[in-house]
């Protein structure tokens, strides 16, 4: 029975990492959402320089791997005087990376709203921001949600990489157990199942939002 006790013991230890994984996912998703809307709107800006800055941000973060960005945030930023804790470096790298992918979703979503909507807003004498906030975005968000759901799962999966800069989330805890007890199968199966559960919760959450936001639109 001692074996079982040991298993339960390190099982608890591993699951304590789930909290860090969820935390990292939520903060990174929040940063990614913010950056996605900022950069997505900037990509559609009338000013050439704003568009150029947004384009450089998007291409840079999509062009280099999340892995390299994380290591740059953790090992290179301190050299220019910005010291981050492992969690901060993780959120920064994963959030900015997710935001770059998300900005294209925002741009495509806004462009998918028919031109007639913009023209009707102009005819009603709405300002550009009123038109965007009250007319375009509410319709665009419905189009964006499924892609955002996929992005949230990608971000959740990317948090595993943060274990390599010593954030003590699920994968890190499992590696600790492996190096100290030599157990491999149970720790890794346990975290695989936990990741699946988190992903399923995320998917269900996005489905809920999709239903909420598509209320009152055609086809719902």
């Amino acid at each position: 029975m001692q074996n079982l006790d040991a298993t339960i013991g390190y099982g608890r230890f591993i699951l304590s990492g789930a909290l860090a994984t969820v935390e990292l996912t939520i903060f990174s998703c929040a940063l990614a959402l913010l950056m996605a809307f900022l950069a997505g709107l900037a990509l559609l800006s009338r000013s050439y320089s704003i568009r150029a800055v947004a384009r450089i941000y998007v291409e840079f973060f999509r062009g280099t791997s999340i892995f390299v960005q994380l290591f740059a945030a953790y090992f290179v930023l301190p050299l220019v005087g910005i010291s981050l804790t492992p969690v901060q470096a993780g959120v920064l790298a994963i959030g900015l990376n997710g935001g770059a992918y998300g900005s294209e979703v925002v741009r495509a979503g806004i462009q998918a709203v028919g031109r007639d909507q913009t023209e009707a807003s102009i005819a009603l004498n709405l300002t550009r921001w009123q038109a965007m906030w009250w007319v375009i975005l509410p319709q665009a968000v419905v189009v964006m949600l499924p892609s955002f759901g996929n992005l949230a799962i990608e971000i959740m999966k990317a948090t595993a990489v943060a274990s390599l800069v010593t954030v003590s989330e699920l994968t890190f805890q499992a590696q600790m157990v492996r190096s100290q007890t030599g157990e491999t199968a149970i720790p890794f199966l346990l975290i695989l199942v936990t990741y699946l559960v988190i992903a399923s919760v995320l998917t269900a959450l996005v489905r809920l939002l999709e239903r909420r936001f598509s209320r009152g639109t055609a086809g719902a």
Binding site: I153, M156, K157, A158, T159, A160, V161, S163, L164, L170, T171, A174, Q175, R178, T184, A185, F188, I191, L192, Y195, L196, A199, S200
Partner: peptide
């Protein structure tokens, strides 16, 4: 869906550390 929803890093650890057992 199971493979898509779990991190690549964990799958690599699985192949590299669990399969030898």
């Amino acid at each position: 869906e199971g493979i898509r929803r779990t991190p690549l890093l964990v799958q690599l650890y699985f192949l590299f550390y669990v399969l030898p057992d």
